[in-house]
Computed example of a mutant assay.
Amino acid sequence: MTNSISRVALVTGAGRGIGRAIALRLAQDGLDVAVNDIAANAEAINETAEAIRATGQRSHAVLADVSDAEEVPNMVASVASELGALDVMVANAGIAHIQGLLDLEVADWDRVMSVNLRGVFLCYQAAARQMIKQGSGGKIIGAASIVAYRPFALLGPYSASKWGVRGLTQAAAMEWAKHKITVNAYCPGIVGTSMWEQIDEKLAEEEGIPKGDALKKYSEAIAMGRVSVPEDVAKYVSYLASTDSDYMTGQSVMIDGGIQFS
């Protein structure tokens, strides 16, 4: 049975991988969960929404490009209208580009920044405006990465974008605390997703090693002895979305199994 007073979350990039795992975990936690992805992933995002409804929670699928300054506010307004409010924003959508900086095209740099940093900014801003209008505070959560603390070679624009998310998260936390809005980020390590399969393939190509060896090489640094699964990250986001984290803001915490220590 649907709980009429459930809190409402919105998860971007929820068609697959970490975003899907987060959306499903928040539904299990008793939240109604709106999900977003781009039009090319319409089938996947609708499947995520159906999986959420199967838990007994409400869902609403919204197709939007998080880098678009008009589509993001419209997405947030659609969620608030359809589900009644917005209490938790998870700005998860992101992309990677694997290439050495000397060969990197400006267009590729801009594409990564537009989704990973501009997109997070637009989601943070639109969510905060909605939460301030509601007057009951809220939780804003962004996708950073372990490369927000130490970059990986051949992931220059991705690393720079995630450093930017870390700084943006701190600034937003300072500005919006007076509205009872907390702003934090999660920093995954090596996760078994299609993005990391792409990273492995490109790194192997660049380093002249067989496919699979690049991921194996980087995975050897994990203290816990295994590559992360999306659910590992979702568990931490569950905490950030809950009232248990009410006194935590401005933090970007690594959930990487013990690769990077700060």
Rank of each mutant, 00 (worst) to 15 (best):
T249R: 08
Q198M: 09
I52V: 15
A143G: 00
Y186N: 00
G212H: 11
R118H: 04
G17M: 06
S159D: 10
F152M: 01
N36V: 06
A241I: 00
F261K: 12
I259W: 00
L215K: 05
A64G: 03
G135C: 13
V165C: 01
A221S: 15
T243I: 08
K202N: 07
S81Q: 15
A93G: 03
A204S: 15
D37W: 04
G212F: 14
N116M: 04
D232G: 14
V8W: 01
A148N: 01
A171G: 12
G142Q: 03
G156M: 05
T182R: 08
N92T: 10
K216A: 07
K180P: 02
V229A: 09
G138T: 13
G94E: 04
Q125N: 08
Y124V: 04
I18H: 04
A9S: 12
E70F: 05
E71G: 00
N36S: 10
V147N: 02
M224A: 07
V62L: 07
N3H: 10
Q134A: 15
Y149F: 12
P188Y: 10
A64D: 08
S78K: 11
I209L: 01
G164N: 10
D68T: 02
A34N: 03
F121N: 05
G164E: 09
G167W: 11
W163D: 00
G19S: 13
K180F: 08
S6M: 05
M174Q: 13
N46Q: 10
L102S: 14
Y124E: 01
L122T: 11
V253P: 00
D29C: 12
G100Q: 09
G189M: 05
W176I: 08
S81C: 11
R53K: 15
K202S: 10
A153P: 13
L10W: 11
A64F: 00
A173G: 03
A241M: 07
K133I: 04
M131I: 09
L203P: 01
I141H: 09
Q198T: 15
Q125V: 03
V237R: 04
L26H: 05
V115C: 02
A221Q: 12
A96L: 06
A54P: 11
L83K: 08
A148P: 06
S161W: 08
L83G: 08
E231C: 12
H97D: 12
I259M: 13
T48A: 06
A23Y: 01
Y124F: 15
L10F: 07
A9Q: 01
L24D: 01
D110R: 15
S6E: 01
T182I: 12
A128L: 11
D232Q: 13
V72F: 03
S114M: 07
A126F: 03
D232S: 11
K235E: 13
E197P: 02
V191W: 03
